[in-house]
Structure formats: C-alpha cells, structure tokens
C-alpha cells in the first residue's frame, strides 16, 4: 500500500509543472545549426566533381555538367531522389566547395512520389529560403556569391 501512495505522490508532484510539449504546427520547433534537413544547393559553387554522387550510400544523387568556354565545368542538372535519400550528410561532408549543404527544411510529406524528386531549381530555392530565414548563419562570402547570381 505504501508503494501506491509513494507513486501517487510523484504523480501529484507532476501536476504544477510546466507543459513540455510544443503545439506543432502552430509553433514550429527551433532547429540547431547542424540540423540535417533537406539539402540546399548553390549551383555557382559546384565544380561537377561528382564526389557527392559517389559517396551517397543509396545513390540518390544524379548530376551532369558541361564545360563552358573557359574549360570550366558547370553544373547542368542536379537531382536528389528523396524517395531514397537517408539524410546521412555524407554528400555535404565530401563537397570541396560547399555547394551542397543541409537546410532546416524537414516537412517532406507529399501526396505523390514525383514530388520527392528534387531538382536543382528546387534546391536553390531552398537555399534562398534558408538564407532569408537564417541570415546570421550564412557566411558573408556565400552571400556575395548568391548576390552575384
């Protein structure tokens, strides 16, 4: 009987405590800087080295590029298949120019699988969205680059 009362005491002591839940989606969670959400992509920085596609454990990245008049490779298409992406962050780790990065976009639910095929434009939009939301996190050099574009 004593055990019950002791337990009940614990339960009662919980009553005046503050709520710990978040009223999502009315209140959105704050994600830390390292949060690994959907990728963002800066096409100007990409040198088409293909390292991200090669390191990807699920091979969900496909990209292509062509040489421009200065013999420099420029990215043409960059697609991530979010059907199979596991957000492991290895692609951003190997990227030498930090053109592929993670954002804090996390809501991926969709009615169609086709919507999960994210192309370069979507990913660049995501980059712009991220910059607007977190101006403090974006490096100045990166902002300049984005400004030029």
């Amino acid at each position: 009987m004593f055990g019950f009362l002791k337990g009940l005491g614990v339960t009662l002591s919980q009553l005046p405590r503050k709520k710990v839940t978040l009223q999502y989606p009315d209140v959105m969670p704050e994600w830390p800087e390292r949060f690994r959400g959907v990728h963002r992509f800066i096409p100007e920085l990409c040198i088409v080295c293909n390292q991200c596609a090669r390191i990807c454990p699920t091979s969900c990245i496909s990209l292509s590029g062509t040489r421009d008049e200065n013999k420099k490779l420029r990215i043409d298409t960059y697609d991530i298949n979010f059907d199979i992406c596991i957000l492991c962050d290895l692609c951003t780790e190997v990227c030498p120019t930090e053109s592929i990065l993670m954002s804090d976009t996390f809501e991926l639910a969709s009615y169609s699988r086709d919507d999960l095929y994210l192309d370069m434009h979507w990913l660049y939009e995501n980059e712009l969205r991220y910059e607007r939301a977190h101006p403090d996190r974006v490096a100045p050099a990166q902002l300049e680059k984005a400004g030029e574009a």
Partner: peptide, 20 residues
C-alpha cells in the same frame, strides 16, 4: 541534435574519430 544534426539516425561517428 545539436552535436550531429539528427534526432534518431545520428551518423555521428567516423572511422578514426567523430564527425564534429
């Protein structure tokens, strides 16, 4: 989440150390 950016699938360790 703060140290490795994920809440469940951390992918935090690397061979030879940790990522961050």
């Amino acid at each position: 989440n703060k140290i490795c950016g994920a809440r469940l699938t951390y992918n935090y360790m690397r061979i030879g150390g940790v990522k961050w």
